[in-house]
Simulated scan of single mutants.
Amino acid sequence: MTGSVVTVTPNPALDITYTVAGLRPGGSHRVPAPLTRAGGKGVNVSRVAHQLGCPTLVISTAGGGTGAEFAADLRNSGIPNRLIPVTAQTRRTIALVDTGADLTSIFNEEGPALSASEWQRLVAAVVESLATAGVLVGSGSLPENAPADFYPALVELAHRAGVPAIIDTSGAGILAAAKAGADLLKPNNDELTEAMGERDLVTAALRLLEMGARRVLVSAGAEGMLAFDAGTPGRYLCARLPEPLRGNPTGAGDAAVSAAAVALAAGITDLEEILRRATAWSAAAVLMPAAGEISPRHQELAGQLIIRRY
């Protein structure tokens, strides 16, 4: 790798994961103690990269009691980080994994607003990190009253430093990042169709390329993952496993982004190789109990993938 995977998480969370063997709506359940860890999409990207021994840096915020827990978990995990102290309390997300029905329900608290000076310190930390970055990743939702151009600005900062930029967000942020020329966008099927107002995934992804994105990966659940490259307009790849895996899909998308980020930081630009890694890491994340880690079976899963060209 030519540099670190630098992740920017403007709306982090303390992730709390409960597991129950059969959920009865309205009923009382006895459950094991939850798994609690620092989360947010960018943090999960860095956690996976760190697990596999790839250099990474988390840039995020932390505030209040949950922010202290968030910071302590990162410290205990050994993941390099730079946290900007903020006044607002770091939000929480709760994942309820029903192993009986093989379903996971997510409850995301809304992110509190940051002050203008807190946004400035966050951006300043990003600028300082680019000297040793191999790729810059902006992930997740934005907190209340966030600058509308935050993710496009990240792309511009990265490109000024000669660093590729990956953006994984939803809504209008996808369109803005595409127009800014992001090197890779990673929506899932619902995020893509909602943002583009287009039900056909291929048509929607090609429109992102037309807007300026260089590559697009689209998670399509059991159907696998689609990959598009502006260098080959009108063509795309699809990768999937012979059979879908059972497990917790909460961090699958973040694992795919981590795989793409590690590849770009290593100078790998071949679309099929990026797709193979992203799909395998995504699948390996489903086998783990919480977001931010992948199963050692990721190499085995990569060898099982069915990849088709269209």
Rank of each mutant, 00 (worst) to 15 (best):
K179P: 03
R121I: 03
A220H: 09
G247Q: 08
A259W: 14
L130H: 00
A285F: 10
L287W: 05
E300P: 06
Y151Q: 02
A68E: 13
Y151D: 02
D102M: 04
S60E: 08
D98V: 11
S46N: 07
A178Y: 00
N81I: 07
V163G: 03
L142A: 06
A62F: 12
V48I: 14
L57N: 04
S170G: 02
I306N: 05
P25M: 05
V97T: 11
S77Y: 08
A256R: 06
G253P: 11
D190R: 15
A88I: 07
S295Q: 04
A146V: 01
S60F: 05
I94V: 15
V202K: 03
G3A: 01
I94K: 01
L264D: 10
L83E: 04
P55M: 09
A222D: 12
I59E: 04
V127C: 01
V97P: 01
A21V: 03
I79P: 00
A38Y: 09
L226F: 15
N248Y: 11
T17W: 10
L275P: 00
A283K: 10
E69F: 08
P85Y: 09
D200A: 12
R308W: 09
D15Y: 11
F107M: 12
M1G: 14
S282E: 09
L245N: 13
A68V: 11
E118H: 02
E300G: 07
R246A: 15
N81W: 04
G171I: 06
P233S: 11
Q89L: 07
P80F: 07
R246C: 12
D98P: 01
T99N: 06
L301V: 11
A220T: 12
L74V: 03
R215Y: 08
L103H: 11
G64R: 08
A72N: 13
A291T: 08
S60Y: 06
R75I: 01
T87M: 07
N145Y: 04
A158T: 03
S28G: 02
H159M: 03
N108R: 01
A261K: 09
A291E: 14
L114S: 02
P143A: 10
G22F: 04
V216G: 04
S129W: 01
A195Y: 04
M288I: 02
S60C: 07
P12T: 06
L35E: 10
P143L: 13
A133D: 01
E109F: 04
R37S: 13
E272F: 10
D15E: 14
R24V: 15
Q51S: 07
G221N: 09
L157T: 00
R92F: 00
I84F: 10
A205D: 08
L103E: 15
A290H: 15
R199H: 09
I167G: 00
L52S: 04
D254W: 05
T87C: 05
D73V: 03
A71V: 08
P296D: 14
N188L: 06
T36Q: 13
C238P: 00
A158Q: 02
V257H: 12
L57E: 05
